Amino acid sequence: MATLDRRAFLRTTGLAGLALGLTACGDNGTSAGAGGGGEGKFGSVKLQLSWKKNIEFAGEYFADSKGYYKAAGFGQVELLSGGGSGTSVESGLATGRCWIGLSTPTITAPAVLQGAQLKIVGATFQKNPFAVVSLGKNPIEDPKALVGKKIGVQDSNELVWNALLKANDIDPASVTRVPFQSDPSMLTSGQLDGYVGFVTSGPVRLKMQGVDAAHFLFADHGLPLVAETFTVAQQTIDSERDKLKAFLAAEIKGWKDAIADPAKSAELAAKTYGKDLNLDVAEQTEEAKMQNELVVTPDAKANGLFSMSSELIEQNIASLAKAGLTIKAENLFDLSIIDEVHKADPSLKLS
């Protein structure tokens, strides 16, 4: 996966990138959300990804390559790469650059608080991938074990790092925070006891290097936030509900395939959709297995992929508050659409 600094900025702060970006121009100022031609009763739409085309979007690759989007009534679903210096999903929705996007509550919430009419209608990752990564020979197994340790934290991760400490009543002064630029050699050389990274990449990369790694998830220790959230304009919910439901049903089918076949997921990422990124198939396969653990949770098994229980929604609202973002659940989430999708087609549930 790509380095953490830019993606962490986009996913956990996003404030400067948005500006909150509500008046910026898209690709050409036209609206992708209008359907814009193409075959199929719903026309063609654009889905903006939260990052570059790596394994994180395996479900989208299956939905596209196996024709689930077209079967659902879409002439084309164009997958727009995110990350880098590109436009954020929230700005893309505001300008019409995309019809739907994959984001995260810590980016969408600030946009909504500044007046953007957006809603989260589903969550691919039921758990955010943020973790503290350490060595197996000197594991940091929970937040309390951070005290007295040297932890690498990028400036762009300050928001989520401070929220983790607050959630666990840890005095920031009790942990030595070390400037970090996503270089795992600082951990293996002993300069750090651990670092803030993504569980889907950090431990896997160390494993591929023959290094035994340990980690704990922020989501399991007082900061349960979802990620890779499907975000749309309120107008889409109000006027294109059937279209949105058809899209999400196709997405679910794609993700069911991705969950069932990590190796094929990696092949699609490395050899087709992300072929310009020089991705390693073996590493992407291991990352696919790791991310499946964030997608398939007991709630997802019980209620269906992308769904969020009322308890999980409230936990996210509480986590956002710890990050300094106070917002009401009804102003950020609308899970009624995904609930209707699963109710209409029970076969979409995980077996």
Rank of each mutant, 00 (worst) to 15 (best):
L165Y: 03
L244R: 10
A282T: 13
L146H: 05
T87Y: 13
P184R: 06
G210S: 02
F333V: 01
T200K: 01
H221T: 01
D334C: 07
I237N: 10
P298W: 04
A260L: 11
K289Q: 09
K328R: 01
V204N: 08
G26W: 11
F9R: 08
V121L: 13
S91C: 11
P224T: 06
G152H: 00
G40C: 05
G202C: 14
S91Y: 08
N331Q: 14
E286W: 09
R177A: 08
S50Q: 04
V226N: 13
L217W: 10
V175M: 02
C25G: 13
I170Y: 02
L244V: 08
F198M: 13
K70R: 15
G86P: 04
K271N: 15
K275Y: 09
T188Y: 00
V226S: 13
Y195F: 15
G210Y: 00
G29S: 14
N292M: 06
A282I: 08
Q181Y: 07
V175C: 06
G148N: 07
C98R: 08
N331G: 10
P262S: 11
K149A: 05
K149M: 02
V296G: 07
A63K: 01
L206N: 07
N138H: 12
K264P: 11
Q315W: 06
G197H: 08
L146V: 01
Y273D: 11
A300Q: 09
I317N: 10
K52H: 14
L268R: 05
G197Q: 07
L159I: 13
Q117S: 12
D276G: 10
F57S: 11
Q234K: 14
T87Q: 15
R177W: 00
G59T: 02
I237F: 13
V147C: 03
G37F: 08
G194I: 07
Q154C: 10
S239C: 00
R6C: 01
T95S: 15
T272S: 02
K289I: 03
S31C: 09
G254T: 02
K149E: 01
